[in-house]
Amino acid sequence: MIEARGLTKVYGDKTAVAGVNFTVEAGRVTGFLGPNGAGKSTTMRMIMGLDRPTSGTVTVNGSPFARHAAPLRDVGALLDAKAVHTSRSAYNHLLAMAATHSIPKKRVHDVIEMTGLADVAKKKVGGFSLGMGQRLGIAAALLGDPQTVILDEPVNGLDPEGVVWVRNLVKYLASEGRTVFLSSHLMSEMAVTADHLIVIGRGRIIADAPIQDIITGKGQIRTRVRTDQPDRLMHLLAGDGVSVELQENELLEVTGLDPRRIARAALDSHVMIYELTPLQASLEEAYMELTKDEVEYHSLITTGAAAPVQSGGN
């Protein structure tokens, strides 16, 4: 289990992570979704004790990473493809990492097999493709057979077969009761991989909910309602977890209540409604809104290169 409390990181005058609170539970895949530069990698580096939080704390299984007696056996991380000396072979890199915890050579061979690196293990990492670098990073993360696995953008640069492999691997790890925390900037990838989703934007947590809730928009459902008795309907719909906003003269926006129940409440009280429009899940809109601000990213979308991002969109 990973717990962040008031976790903050400030670089100069830029706040990368602004006092976030979240918990990553064991036994499920928790996705960490956010556009590039949202603070995902910074947060993960702080979990691994590589970056020091400006304020706040983050613990793994109850204690800060640096206090663990055998860190690699508790937490494995892929923070960066190729966090490796480019002139060393993949095998020697893993061997040196393993030596710090007396992890046997057999385990080094096992993770090489598991990640499909057997053919290139003796070659210099500098010549690796991005995808092979990712596989090596994942091999390093699994080296200590850790209870907690942290993967920063693991599918970047992987071919489609590799993407499916990572997807199955993380699900398998979670099914074994491990804590799995992986980041991505692709909503579509998260939708098929994660069980639970934490969404971050500009260093703040935007949403923290089960993936199903987020995809179906439960708790986030917004419905546009037009009626000639807006005040009466507002009164009827009021309740826990429901917010009703008067937007125009006869136009209401209802959050937290599905259209069927709005219609039922109106019918029961003989209030006429003349429009009832379910709106898209607001999370995705909010997410798209965030990414839209990044000019480079936006231009990619318009050329269609990042089409998968929009697959679940409006």
């Binding site: 299984n61 204690s63 663990h68 056996r73 508790d74 915890h101 007396s102």
Partner: peptide, 9 residues
């Protein structure tokens, strides 16, 4: 917590 089952650094 304290899941380590082997030697540390």
């Amino acid at each position: 917590s304290g899941t380590s089952t082997g030697p540390g650094p």
